[in-house]
Structures are given as C-alpha cells and as structure tokens.
Simulated assay, not measured.
Amino acid sequence: MTSSFVIAVDGPAASGKGTIATRLGAIYGLPVLDTGLLYRAVGVLSLRAGRDLDDAAATAKTAAGLSADLLEDPAFRTRAAGEAASRVAVHPEVRAALLAFQRDFAGQAGGAILDGRDIGTVIAPDAPAKLYVTASPEVRAERRWKQLTAQGEGVSIEEVLADIRIRDARDSGRDAAPLKPAPDAVLLDTSEMTIDHATDAARRIVEAARARWTAS
C-alpha cells in the first residue's frame, strides 16, 4: 500500500479534469496541482525571456527555475498559453525538469490530487485512484470557447475546435509521456454530463479506489 492517497486525474484539454480535480480536493480535503499550468508557465515565461519554444535546452532552463509562487499569473490561462504549453511539453528535457516538482507534490503526507496528461502513467504510476476524463472534441471546444470569451478573448468556436484537434494530435503523438490512459485508469466521459453529475461519478470512482487501497 502506498503511504499517501494520491488521485491522478488525466485527460485532454477542456475535458473537465481540472474542475473535477478541484471539486475532489474540496470533498476530500486534499491539495490539488494543475500540472498543465506548469507547462503553460514554462511556455509563457520562455516567450517573455525571448527563448524559442522549439529549443529544448532553452525551455528546460525556464522549467528548472519554476517555483510555486510564479503560477498565479492570469496570462497562463489564455489561449496563447495553451498553445505554448503544448509546444514545450514535447521536450523530454522540459518534462524531466518538472518531474521532481510534481512528484514532491504527490508525495505529501495525507495525499494529493494532480490533474494533467501523464499523472497516472509517469508522475504517480502507483496512485491508488486513477481517472481518465474525456469528452468529444466538439464538447470540449465549446467549453473552452465559453471560458476564453468570458476572459475577454475574441476567438471563434471553429478556431478553438481546430486548436483542440491540433493539441490532441500533438499531445498523443509526442515521444515523451504521450497522452493516454493508464492501463488501470477508469474512463469518465463527461460529454453528456453536467459538472455536478461528473463530480459525483468521479467521487464514486475515487470511493471505490479508496476502499481497495484501505483494504490492501
């Protein structure tokens, strides 16, 4: 039995995994880390420093200097930040630089929740609870479009859908920690669910996993 109860919430962009992770954190009183935000931060901070996002060594330097106090910048939540994150996330050097940050968070006494794309496969492969949250590209595009327009970004839903498809292909096709469900992850398709229904389904998945973990 692992020493702490870790919940790994993986899935593609705008699947609802971040909201589900946050709600699970409130239910179980566990700290939550949005690991995608780390890559968004690396992308944006690299651009600010004049670094080429396709330069693995340069962006890895940005990743190595990342700290938790830098993650509150609202610029990391923009459409441009998402694109930058997808570009730097393909570099094994960047992923390696962020590995300890994520594993330290997962190793907290009492447990933690991490949402991302490789939590159950790379960051916390022994996590007692693993969810893979997904939804159709069209549903995810509508969700992201509503979020972006609420932030004041002028973008069409067609552009957002194109971004989603490009990012899915890039995240799933990269050599370093490609986006895919862990073999023991429970699939949660939120396409036809409200957030309350999705949260309840996720809670039931976690409860079943916690019962097995406690009994082991």
Rank of each mutant, 00 (worst) to 15 (best):
A75L: 15
G154W: 02
D115H: 12
L33V: 14
R87P: 11
G25F: 04
D175W: 03
L99P: 04
E158K: 04
D34E: 11
E153H: 10
T190W: 01
P31W: 02
I27L: 07
L45H: 12
K146Y: 03
I164M: 08
S3I: 00
A13T: 13
Q108W: 09
H91T: 08
I164W: 01
R167T: 08
K180F: 00
L38C: 09
I195K: 00
L187T: 11
S15K: 00
F76Q: 13
D10P: 04
S136A: 15
A63H: 05
L99Q: 12
T134G: 07
D163W: 00
A68P: 00
P178C: 09
E83F: 09
R174M: 14
E138A: 14
T149F: 05
D184M: 03
R174Y: 13
V44A: 07
G11E: 10
V186E: 09
R23E: 14
E192W: 01
A135S: 11
T134P: 03
R165P: 02
E159G: 10
D175P: 03
D104P: 02
S191H: 03
F105S: 10
V94W: 01
R174H: 13
S3A: 05
W213S: 04
D10C: 07
R140F: 10
A85N: 07
A150I: 12
P74S: 15
D54F: 05
H197T: 12
V44Y: 01
D189S: 01
A109I: 13
E153F: 10
W213G: 01
G18C: 13
G16M: 06
A162E: 13
T214F: 01
D171E: 14
T62F: 02
R40C: 06
V32F: 11
R210T: 04
D54M: 05
K61S: 10
A201R: 10
A169E: 11
